[in-house]
């Protein structure tokens, strides 16, 4: 039997793994990938709540607002990745590396 709590727990695990990835990796693209994993975990949470409220007598639009916001998160994630990867390419052109530790231009 599928439980909302178990789905939410899975999403929490995925989100924490994404946080771990962001904190532990030094490669900029790996950072973005872990960020995507976190957004994906949030999507799973949103869809879970959408399904939960649909089973508790919400109206059509209220029950689907979770799915709608999942689509919004997907669009924002796509925009974010586009900009992020463009920034990484631009940085790589200047510095010939994509190691996060090399980004020290604003230091001091």
């Amino acid at each position: 039997m599928l439980e909302p709590k178990s789905v939410l727990f899975l999403a929490a695990i995925l989100f924490s793994a994404g946080v771990y990835g962001v904190l532990s990796r030094r490669h900029l693209i790996m950072l973005l990938m872990s960020l995507e994993l976190m957004l994906n975990a949030i999507n799973i949470m949103l869809v879970t709540f959408s399904r939960y409220w649909a089973g508790r007598g919400s109206g059509l639009i209220a029950a689907h607002s979770g799915q709608f916001f999942t689509l919004m998160v997907m669009a924002v994630a796509a925009a974010e990745v586009g900009i992020g990867l463009a920034i990484i390419v631009a940085i790589y052109r200047r510095k010939h590396t994509s190691d996060a530790d090399a980004m020290t231009d604003l230091k001091n």
């Binding site: 995507e36 586009g82 990484i88 994509s98 530790d101």
Partner: peptide, 23 residues
């Protein structure tokens, strides 16, 4: 969106850049 577009974009940029770090 994710598995199609985003993953291909990531792969594209991985090919563009040096994926090695100090480690």
């Amino acid at each position: 969106i994710y598995a199609g577009a985003l993953a291909v974009m990531f792969l594209f940029v991985l090919m563009f850049t040096d994926t090695r770090t100090e480690e």
